[in-house]
Computed example of a mutant assay.
Amino acid sequence: MKIISEPQELKAYLKEQNKTIGYVPTMGALHEGHIELIKNARKENELVVVSIFVNPTQFLKGEDLDKYPRRDEADKKICELAGVDVIFFPTKENIYFEDEVKIEAPEVRGYVLEGATRPGHFSGVLRIVMKLLNIVNPTRAYFGKKDAQQLNLIQLMVRHYYMDVEIVPINTVREADGLARSSRNIYLTSEQRKEALKISASLYAASKMISKKEFDVQTIKEEMLKILEPLEIGYVEIVNREFKPINDVEVGNTIILVEAVAGTTRLLDNIWL
């Protein structure tokens, strides 16, 4: 397994390989969700690249950039065991430039849901993903469905900028109790974790209602909000897969999303129907 920090060195090395490349961008603190992405990349490509970079441009003032979990040595071992060929470990200094050209999130879809409470967050996400995709130039790049809005915006960017990469969505990996895997779960106390389980419980309840032919969005949301009490709720929304509001669930074209805070930890989860 090679470890490379310089973008130009990585570009040159990958170009020499002349192989299909599966790419998994991460911010480190790897868990089973990341491993699932790597497994899919390993299965579908000749070469697997994982990047580890805690991207400062997607954190807003006062967010947890400084305390975001970093476990570089453990992450290297996980990558080695998972069959990764190359880890890309860039630094802020060799990724960003002074007064650089920037990409911006779309004015509507980038500023609703998570973008409404974190204005500019998705511009930072798209900025780093554009850079990383151009450096790695992968055949396929793998992203989790848990960050559904992020995934949608990356797919839009690839389409709108005619980028030659296949974006592969991978299902959310959950812990045994149903909590969606997240690097931020380590912040939760045992009591906060119990409260956080209301998030997945609300999604399961919505799914059950829909299986019983309840398609009215407002009715489903009201039931979810009851289950989520007393969590601090960022949003509970039901949208189609283009992130446009709907009045009735359309099976095969619907995402139900929750953002809630347990203790001081902001958690995201969703189901795709």
Rank of each mutant, 00 (worst) to 15 (best):
E175R: 03
E98L: 10
E195R: 15
Q8S: 15
K76H: 08
N253A: 05
V50P: 10
Y68H: 01
Q17C: 01
F215P: 12
F143Y: 10
L203D: 03
F88I: 12
R71F: 11
A180M: 07
V261Y: 04
I95T: 14
M130T: 14
S207P: 01
Y235P: 00
L153M: 00
E98Y: 03
R127F: 11
H34M: 08
K146C: 12
H34A: 01
Q192D: 14
V158N: 07
I167Y: 04
S182T: 08
G263H: 08
I154L: 07
G83H: 03
N134D: 07
K146Q: 08
I38Y: 00
I238W: 05
A206P: 10
V239I: 02
V136G: 11
H34G: 05
V125C: 13
D85T: 06
E214F: 08
P169I: 10
I220K: 12
Y204H: 13
V112W: 02
K212E: 15
E80L: 13
I186G: 11
G263F: 13
G62H: 07
F215T: 15
K67L: 05
E46Q: 14
N240Y: 04
L126T: 09
G144D: 14
I128D: 02
I21G: 07
E73W: 03
E93N: 13
S5Y: 11
A29N: 14
N171Y: 04
L268D: 02
Y13N: 03
E36L: 08
E222R: 14
N152F: 13
E93M: 09
P245G: 08
R184W: 04
I135N: 09
E166A: 07
K145W: 02
I271E: 00
L228P: 02
Y162D: 06
T91I: 09
E44I: 00
I186V: 15
E100L: 05
E93F: 10
D147P: 12
I95R: 02
Y68M: 07
R181E: 14
E9K: 15
P56C: 05
